[in-house]
Simulated scan of single mutants.
Amino acid sequence: MLTLSLIGIGCGDPGQLTRAAITAINSADLVLIPRKGSAKSDLADLRRTICADVLTSDKTDIAEFDLPARDADEADYRKGVDDWHDAVAAAWSRTIADHLGHEGKVALLIWGDPSLYDSSLRIARRLDPLPDIEVVPGITSIQALCAAHALPLNDIGEPFLVTTGRRLREGGWPQGVDTVVVMLDGGTAFQALDPAGFYIYWGAYLGMSDQIIISGALAEAGPRIAAARQDARERHGWIMDSYILKRRA
């Protein structure tokens, strides 16, 4: 049988690894490291660093592969994602077959946690043959963002909503909540809101040495975040950020 372990590794700080994650990495026969292009080489480098730091088993091999890119020009968003998931599943299958065959334990180190705005669980269920799937939870970007700002996410007895930049931009502020967590924002969707009465808590490269955090009233902090975001993207060639918006009376 083939077992696939999806191991949450946190948001960039190797110290965020749990003991369960370290045990799972060491029990693997093969660790897969995706390469996302030179612009995101930091992400592959961190996975290599984690393996070098925690691997004590001499039976564990490491295999790197190029991760297919999603077609951003596909007009049908869901179809574009579906096609991309098929391509990624095929890349996983090829790499596993080339290095391990159809028996053994494979590990994938997942940024953050596999359950939150991550495609790995959906992709894993497209593999043929279908492996046993094991999940080791990790620190999410939401937890890392709240910790960076020393911020409690929910107000007392109140709900919050987690959404994407695209949904915020297209649908506006969601009804029934005063706290919204925004992830996967390819731009600055918060600029589509009337800033009056909103506070923002933003962070990029959370847990990494280049971490940036900015907070404040949206009217004042929003332009600073937009400028910092553009500058960081130009310097690194990529950016991974998220933010929390709170509406105050």
Rank of each mutant, 00 (worst) to 15 (best):
T188H: 13
T179Q: 01
L184C: 09
T140L: 03
I110S: 14
I9R: 04
D82T: 14
G12M: 08
W111H: 05
V88L: 11
D210W: 12
G157Y: 09
Q230R: 12
T140S: 15
V162C: 11
R126T: 08
E103H: 15
R169V: 08
S38P: 06
T140Y: 04
G104L: 13
D73Y: 13
G197F: 11
A196D: 12
V106R: 06
A144L: 10
T18M: 10
E74W: 03
I33R: 00
R35G: 12
E234L: 11
L2A: 07
S119T: 03
I142W: 05
T164M: 07
P129Y: 12
L109E: 07
S27M: 14
A90I: 03
L127H: 06
Y201N: 10
L153S: 04
D66K: 11
E74M: 14
A232L: 14
G197Q: 03
S57T: 12
I25E: 09
M208K: 09
W111C: 08
K246G: 03
I110R: 01
A97M: 09
G138E: 08
R47S: 05
L193T: 08
I7C: 11
V106Q: 03
P195Y: 12
H99R: 15
G10W: 13
S57E: 12
V182K: 00
V54G: 01
A227F: 12
M240Y: 13
Y201D: 08
G112L: 09
L206F: 13
G216N: 00
W111E: 04
Y117N: 11
P223T: 04
R126W: 10
S38D: 10
E170I: 08
Y199D: 15
L121I: 15
T95A: 03
W84N: 02
R235E: 12
D53A: 15
G15L: 05
Q16T: 13
R47F: 10
V180I: 08
D76C: 03
W202L: 01
R94I: 15
A124W: 09
T49I: 01
G222W: 02
E64Y: 04
V181F: 00
P223L: 04
S209V: 15
G237A: 00
A148W: 05
L109Y: 10
R47L: 07
E64Q: 12
L245N: 04
S115I: 00
D73F: 11
P14Q: 00
G101N: 07
T49R: 11
I139Y: 06
T188Q: 11
L55Q: 07
I25D: 04
R35I: 12
E220N: 07
A217C: 07
V181Q: 00
A90Q: 14
G138K: 00
